[in-house]
């Protein structure tokens, strides 16, 4: 279990918890741990962020380097390292998307490496590689990019095409709706994942993990697209 004593306190020798000795309360050197473990949380995605925030403030006060101004240099250094870990862990876990991306990395997702391996397999076997982005979204991305190119060209020539601008605006609001819908869909998958953490087969977990990855990929694509549309409309 995370948060349990994993080694002995450097100062009093008691078995200690993650950040402080359970007996003498001294700050401990940071141990290599993932962010969930740092907060003594299971690797689940539905998370009480209010609770996380409270825990963050408690730890933040206790680990603050100012508290250790009069302590040994070693303790000062550890409190600094622990504080910085704490900040990274909090920032990552409080954000729903960052939290999911982080979990997927912990669960062995390496997007580029996997894509490359799949391409090599396709070459070796003659099988067709499954694209991570669904074809209909790719079509949409491509078409929209064509329109954006046209718009940039027109602007460069000093021309004005209100119909095209209007079409792009409509398209953009559709995309923004999709973007929001994908977050809701992702949250549905969180529940599935969290159930599987306690009782589920490896295969089931990989299945849900990959579904979440698909959703995140689509969401990233749409985010970039909305950004590009905004840029083209404003410039």
């Amino acid at each position: 279990m995370p948060g349990e004593a994993t080694s002995t306190c450097w100062s009093c020798g008691t078995m200690r918890a993650v950040h402080f000795c359970s007996a003498c309360g001294k700050v401990q050197p940071p141990v290599p741990a993932d962010y969930f473990t740092f907060f003594a949380l299971p690797r689940k995605l539905s998370l009480d962020t209010a609770l996380l925030e409270r825990e963050f403030y408690v730890l933040s006060r206790k680990l603050h380097p100012d508290v250790y101004a009069q302590s040994q240099p070693q303790e000062q250094e550890w409190s600094m390292e622990q504080s910085s870990l704490l900040n990274d862990a909090y920032r990552t876990l409080k954000d729903p998307i960052k939290r999911t991306e982080y979990l997927l990395r912990l669960e062995g997702v390496e997007l580029e490496e996997q894509s490359k391996t799949a391409t090599e397999k396709a070459r070796a076997t003659g099988e067709v590689k499954k694209q991570v982005v669904p074809p209909d979204l790719l079509e949409e991305v491509f078409e929209l990019n064509m329109q954006l190119e046209e718009l940039r060209m027109q602007k460069k020539m000093g021309e004005d095409d209100p119909a095209l601008v209007e079409e792009l605006r409509k398209h953009k609001s559709n995309l923004e709706e999709k973007y929001e819908a994908l977050l809701a869909e992702l949250k549905g998958h969180w529940n599935q994942w969290d159930k599987l953490v306690d009782s589920g087969s490896e295969d089931d977990r990989i299945k849900v993990r990959n579904q979440m990855l698909d959703l995140l990929n689509r969401r990233n694509y749409i985010r970039n697209l909305v950004r590009d549309v905004n840029e083209a409309l404003e410039n």
């Binding site: 997702v109 996997q114 799949a118 397999k121 099988e127 067709v128 499954k130 694209q131 990959n210």
Partner: peptide, 8 residues
């Protein structure tokens, strides 16, 4: 098609 290969 080898489905899901992209993620394995």
């Amino acid at each position: 098609p080898a489905t899901a290969e992209a993620h394995q």
